[in-house]
Amino acid sequence: MVCMELSGTPKKIVSARDLGIVACSRCSKAWPLGTQTCARCGHALVSRDPMSLQRVWAYWVMGLICYVPANLFPMLQTRTLFQVDESTIIGGAVELAHHGNLGIAAIIIFASVVIPLGKFWAVAFLALSVKNRSMVSKNMRQFLYEVVEYIGRWSMIDIFVVAILSSLVQLKALAAINPGTAAMFFALSVIFTMLSAQAFDSRLIWDVQAKDKSAGDGGAEINE
């Protein structure tokens, strides 16, 4: 494994902004600070996106608003010979648990309750930690951000399960499963939280650290 080093300064790591460089956030080519657009890929260049946090919060709030009806309305409508069952996300999981499918119930609760709530918490925490000093190390927060970005897409699994079930289980009089209103809101909520996480500029995490260092003990080492 090769480690990148800026010659002569093996220990101290310098931010591009402090060197008068702005890097394209899409193709990562370096340009002098003040360049407007990347000549390689045409993306607009910003050293730090001043609107980043505002967009994060806007999408975050939209996601949270959509998440409420996603839990209140029914996700699935199951029609069997004699009865029509409408179950919400949590209701469906509880029902599965009653039937003895504890494992599947746990997966559903995890994928559609724990992960979304965890995502809301994590994005809010990251956005706040950029403004205020945080006790959590930058490496931890960077890791948290990567986890949020990676795991965000997986919440769509619920929508796909509903789609598969409601196209597959169409057995005329015997049984039929149809999607409920909550599916729409849940999908929107997932999409908005994905956008929220994407809007976050992870370079901000490391800026706070640079500021802390110059104000505080001068030469804290970051290398592991």
Binding site: V2, M4, E5, L6, I21, S202, I222
Partner: peptide, 27 residues
Amino acid sequence: VIVCPQCDAVFQLVRPQHGERAKCQRC
């Protein structure tokens, strides 16, 4: 020069051999 897109650290460009990986030292 190569800039880490994730944490904005600057490094001198070292092209790794095939099969090797160049990682950002900071993040």
